[in-house]
Design a protein around this nucleic acid. Structure first.
Length: 453
RNA sequence: GGCGCGAUAGCAAAGCGGUUAUGCUCUGGAUUGCAAAUCCAGCUAGGCCGGUUCGACUCCGGCUCGCGCCUCCA
């Protein structure tokens, strides 16, 4: 039985999908105008893990992760670079997909783009105007938050409280300071779409509502994203969708991941202290980055550092080491084996990945003691797969994918001869020579193998 | 000002009212021509002050410190 923490109720709940054999999940993806940072990667890895677990439990899972390809930051970046927003976003959306694949994230079932759904958005705005939840003012269309009783419930705040802390000037055309933009006008040189309110573009929150309605329906099971999206993004999405659908429930379980911090502070594009996934991939295995992201429970903050990544790498070395030393075959796990695994139990408890990883370590220790045990090895590999870990060949993990390793083999052969000749000085010399090039030699009864540092 | 989160050993990070979390690091031992890997043993915990309890890291209250949202943000 899967339990998830629901932001809406502020409690851990048993997960029961609306349709018993079809789960619908939507996760907010990135705005593509640059390489994504590691903070963008956390929800991807977290909800990818949830996607894998859900696939074990339910017959069908539809997982949508959007690409935001229209937005003022995109417009600014495109203008600066003198290219179209379509060219800019197509490029960075591709790079995003590449980066996420390096983190072993499976492809979502669908990856809808905002610009493909402008018609849906316009239709939703029309519906909101028609039923009295939105109004047109000065070429804008605004959502009337006072027309909704429960506005603020998701983020647990009252309208008065919110406005008290507001640090932004209120636009004069708003009936009420808390009203938010559904549609805004575009100038001649800005991207825009024709609409009943003139040429313009959608407000930020609208795309998710429209894409969910189009692809998944009025009500979905899980909506995920970073904590910072709770307000205003998800609160406003909820308001729009619910009001456009006569009060019908929008989302059953809201799930939000905590932040990635750097030196104890939130990492963000606006603070400029962010690290791109691309840069990190130049220094660390994608799998080590993924491991680091899963080393903390998803709702907690996670301080991202080289130390964390080094520890992740060392831990993976230990796990892959156990696989390398085991000659046993890996078999597919039965449902029963999976259900009995402590790793699975940890994941079912609101994705307790740190606990799940500790269980992986326990399995690897046992496997080191009993390398022939195929059940142990199969459980280790099969359960790690649910977290997107330990899926490459141990040799590949330790040696990389270098094409020509014959020079290493040559030196090992030379050293073996030196050892036979009892010329240990020469043998040690070769060891040092390889170590200087980042190659570690491991002698065993079966012979000498090597790995990268 | 409103709302919320956190504080666990050198680092990272969980569960749990009483029984070894776990990993990395470090120390000692086994093993090894050397080294690594592995195994065994060990070392550092629960911000502070009270309360409840036979017993609290775990429950309750207060305090201190740190962080987040209220503005584009994963």
């Amino acid at each position: 039985m899967l339990k998830v923490y629901n932001t809406a109720t502020r409690a851990k709940e048993t997960f029961t999908p609306i349709e018993s054999d079809h789960v619908k999940m939507y996760v907010c993806g990135p705005t593509v105008y640059n390489y994504v940072h590691i903070g963008n990667a956390r929800p991807v890895v977290v909800f990818d893990t949830l996607f894998r677990v859900l696939n074990c439990l339910f017959k069908q899972v539809t997982y949508a992760r959007n690409i935001t390809d229209i937005d003022d930051k995109i417009m600014k970046a495109a203008k600066e670079q003198g290219i179209s927003i379509a060219a800019l976003t197509a490029h960075y959306a591709d790079e995003y997909v590449k980066d996420m694949a390096q983190l072993n994230a499976l492809s979502p079932t669908i990856s809808p783009k905002a610009t493909d759904h402008v018609g849906d958005m316009i239709a939703m705005v029309e519906a909101l105007i028609a039923n009295g939840h939105a109004y047109e003012a000065d070429k804008h269309v605004l959502f009337d938050v006072k027309s909704m009783d429960d506005y603020g419930k998701l983020s647990n705040r009252s309208l008065e409280d919110m406005l008290e802390g507001a640090r932004v000037e209120v636009a004069s055309y708003k009936k009420y300071a808390g009203d938010f933009v559904l549609w805004k006008p575009s100038s001649e040189d800005e991207p825009g779409w024709d609409s009943p309110w003139g040429r313009g573009r959608p407000g930020w929150h609208l795309e998710c509502s429209a894409m969910i309605e189009n692809h998944l329906g009025d009500t979905i099971d899980i909506h995920g994203g970073g904590r910072d999206l709770i307000f205003p993004h998800h609160e406003n999405e909820l308001a729009q969708s619910q009001c456009a659908h006569n009060g019908k429930q929008y989302v059953k379980y809201w799930m939000h991941n905590g932040f990635i911090n750097v030196d104890g502070e939130k990492m963000s594009k606006s603070l400029g202290n962010f690290k791109t996934v691309r840069d990190l991939l130049g220094k660390f295995h994608g799998e080590a980055i993924r491991f680091a992201l899963l080393s903390g429970q998803y709702r907690s903050e996670l301080d991202f550092s080289a130390e964390l990544l080094n520890q992740a790498k060392a831990s993976l070395d230990a796990l892959y080491g156990a696989l390398l030393n085991s000659p046993a075959p890996v078999q597919a796990l039965s449902d029963e084996q999976r259900n009995q695994s402590a790793v699975f139990a940890a994941l079912l408890d609101d994705l307790n990945t740190p606990l799940a990883i500790s269980e992986l370590h326990k399995l690897s220790k046992e496997l080191n003691k009993f390398p022939e045990n195929a059940d142990l090895k199969s459980e280790l590999v099969g359960m790690a797969e649910l977290m997107g870990l330990l899926q490459q060949e141990p040799d590949t993990w330790f040696q990389g994918e270098e094409s020509d390793t014959s020079w290493i083999e040559d030196l090992i052969a030379q050293r073996n001869q030196a050892k036979l000749d009892k010329n240990y000085a020469r043998a040690d010399e070769i060891r040092e020579e390889l170590k200087a090039k980042g190659i570690i030699l491991l002698d065993s009864k079966e012979g000498t193998s090597w790995r990268k540092e």
